[in-house]
Design a protein around this nucleic acid. Structure first.
Length: 210
DNA sequence: TTGAAGAGGTGTGGCACGAC
DNA sequence: GTCGTGCCACACCTCTTCAA
């Protein structure tokens, strides 16, 4: 299943404007919206949070350009960025400093490279499982691909790094503004409940070598 | 346990303004 | 005319409380 991403929807709107021979603000204007509605600064907040256009704004833009919804979907899915290989790191090393930036994206040296099936996240990376604490889901030597750019939902398997430098593979049970509940993949290990402030980053596992 | 109601928080679009 | 930024209004969402 493919999720609709923030980047895809805005890229599709840019392509929609381009097809109509308009700028982003020109498209907004023709759609009866404020010319700044599709501005770059309206796509992301000062603190880095993604801003999304409303379905009403998208519908107006489609109407203004005489574009059917399936054509818009084509603009979204056109020329997807497919990653052929991703950086690889041992899970046991992941807790150490220097391998990730503040956003949980791979950074620095010490990464190897591993090929894999298509993944639509340029920030994706791989981790090699060490030990049997993730059994039966993952065994020692398995490789998991982690996508920090993919939205996370309840029930997803995730990699969590705590502010204390601990890295763990869990299943997301619940995530609220006050707690992050994580279920252990190995029944002999206890579930964990963390405060959001204790979570440095959390990223979804999108593929595993099994 | 469930549903209703209210409070408070969140997020998108619009307005004003400036730069080019 | 276009683009960018800051601020604000208001609709919507989430959470809490309370009654049945």
């Amino acid at each position: 299943m493919h999720m609709l991403t923030h980047d895809q929807i805005w890229t599709a709107l840019d392509r929609l404007a381009e097809r109509a021979g308009l700028s982003a603000s020109g498209l907004a204007k023709r759609s009866g919206l404020d010319p700044t509605t599709f501005n770059k600064s309206k796509r992301i907040t000062n603190d880095g949070r993604e801003r999304w256009p409303s379905t009403e704004s998208v519908a107006k833009a489609l109407a203004a350009t005489n574009t059917a919804i399936d054509t818009f979907v084509q603009l979204i899915t056109d020329r997807p960025r497919v990653v052929q290989s991703v950086p690889l790191l041992g899970l046991a090393q992941a807790g150490a400093g220097g391998f990730f930036d503040d956003g949980g994206f791979p950074a620095g040296k010490g990464w190897e490279e591993v090929g894999l099936p298509s993944v639509n996240d340029e920030h994706a990376y791989a981790l090699e499982i060490s030990g049997d604490s993730m059994k039966p889901a993952y065994r020692d030597g398995d490789i998991i691909v982690v996508s920090p750019g993919t939205a996370i939902r309840r029930g997803d398997r995730v990699v969590v790094k705590t502010t204390g430098g601990e890295v763990m593979v869990k299943e997301l049970k619940r995530r609220t503004t006050k707690i992050v509940e994580l279920a252990s993949l190995n029944p002999s290990h206890a579930d964990r409940t963390l405060a959001p402030a204790d979570v440095e980053w959390i990223a979804r596992i999108v593929w595993a070598s099994q």
